[in-house]
Every structure is written in C-alpha cells, then in structure tokens.
Amino acid sequence: MKFLYLVFALFLLFSLATPGYGKVRKTCAPVGYCSPKCRVMDLKYTSADCKYSCCIPTTWKGK
C-alpha cells in the first residue's frame, strides 16, 4: 500500500511540475496581435490561434 502512495505522489509531483499544466489557452484576435517578439510594454502570453505568442498592447491590460 505504501508503494501505491509513493507512485501516486511521484505522478502528482511530476504532473504539477510540467510547464503549462492547467493553463487555458485563449484566443488572441479581439484584443491583441500575434508576433514572435512582443514590444517592451506589451503583455505576452500563449494563445491557441498564434504560432508564437499573443501580444496585448498596454491600453488593453486594464479592460
């Protein structure tokens, strides 16, 4: 039984340490633009419809 607990704990730690685990990928089209490199003041995140990353201009951050 202790072995099963150990296997489950290792699986849980591995799955939570995986980058991007549990993140919902949103669309970029209505508020931002797709680009391999964002401007310095833009917010950068991954998106389902962008190959590289979605860049949101600073005017959209608070809206």
Score class of each variant (00 low, 15 high):
25 R>Y: 12
19 P>F: 08
13 L>V: 15
34 C>L: 00
21 Y>K: 06
34 C>R: 00
51 K>F: 14
8 F>K: 01
38 C>P: 08
26 K>D: 13
7 V>Q: 04
36 P>Y: 07
57 P>S: 05
41 M>V: 15
10 L>R: 08
6 L>Y: 07
43 L>C: 10
51 K>L: 13
48 A>I: 08
49 D>G: 07
42 D>E: 10
34 C>N: 01
24 V>S: 09
38 C>N: 05
8 F>L: 11
50 C>M: 02
1 M>D: 12
10 L>W: 04
11 F>G: 14
8 F>P: 00
47 S>F: 01
61 K>W: 11
63 K>W: 11
35 S>F: 00
33 Y>D: 02
3 F>R: 02
33 Y>V: 07
52 Y>E: 06
4 L>N: 06
20 G>F: 05
21 Y>A: 15
9 A>F: 11
57 P>R: 01
44 K>C: 12
48 A>W: 02
16 L>G: 13
63 K>A: 07
43 L>S: 07
18 T>D: 09
45 Y>T: 09
50 C>G: 07
41 M>E: 15
40 V>Y: 12
19 P>M: 06
43 L>P: 00
24 V>A: 12
51 K>M: 10
63 K>Y: 14
20 G>Y: 10
58 T>V: 14
23 K>Q: 12
55 C>Q: 04
60 W>P: 01
25 R>V: 11
27 T>Y: 09
43 L>I: 06
61 K>M: 07
5 Y>P: 03
63 K>R: 13
40 V>K: 12
57 P>T: 03
61 K>Q: 11
29 A>T: 13
26 K>G: 08
49 D>M: 02
1 M>G: 11
9 A>I: 06
23 K>C: 04
34 C>Y: 03
24 V>F: 11
50 C>A: 08
62 G>C: 11
56 I>T: 09
21 Y>G: 09
26 K>M: 12
28 C>T: 06
35 S>P: 02
14 F>C: 15
16 L>H: 07
53 S>I: 04
30 P>V: 10
17 A>K: 03
7 V>M: 13
24 V>P: 04
63 K>N: 09
18 T>I: 13
25 R>K: 14
61 K>A: 09
42 D>Y: 00
2 K>W: 04
40 V>R: 08
28 C>S: 06
38 C>I: 01
10 L>V: 13
36 P>G: 13
60 W>A: 15
23 K>E: 12
18 T>Y: 14
30 P>N: 10
46 T>R: 08
54 C>P: 02
42 D>Q: 04
6 L>M: 11
18 T>F: 15
3 F>E: 08
30 P>K: 08
34 C>Q: 03
59 T>L: 05
35 S>H: 09
23 K>I: 13
54 C>A: 05
28 C>E: 01
24 V>I: 13
